[in-house]
Amino acid sequence: MTSKIKEFPGVALRESDFAEKKILYTTWEPNARYAWDAGIAIGRYLAELKQGRIIGTRCHKCRRTVVPPRNFCEWCFRPMDEWVYLEDYGVVNTYSITYVKWNMVRVEQPILPAVIEIAGASKGMGIMHLLGEVEPDEVKIGMKVQAVWKPAKERVGAITDILYFKPVE
């Protein structure tokens, strides 16, 4: 059938068609502001970050210690059994060297997002965070990294209370 249709519908516009008012259009700003509850498990996680600690939760049935913590085990579908303090170091599971911010604006100094497997949690339990104090070409998967915390009195109970993770021996 596609071979029979000569001209498919769809009129392509250029960005300049808007700027030069070659076509009519209207705009709208939804102004959608939210206050998201962190919830029970992540509420505690954030509170512990303020204290300079990373906390996870453990399920006695599947014996997993997970981070970020959750109040139910999604494998066993039952409540988690205990809170477990984890280390504030781990290993790089994967990383990227990025030159674009969230809004696609380019940056000169690359941002280094990574998944970091946190020591003390079960194998493969990572969180997303940033790497710092490291040259982009020196980052390696499997590299040991340690949290660099904001000074205690600047911490507010947010994931950004950890500034970034830096390589350690």
Binding site: R33, D37, A38, G43
Partner: peptide
Amino acid sequence: NVEARVVEGEI
């Protein structure tokens, strides 16, 4: 020691 925490933001 868990206070209710709210993260504010927008789309």
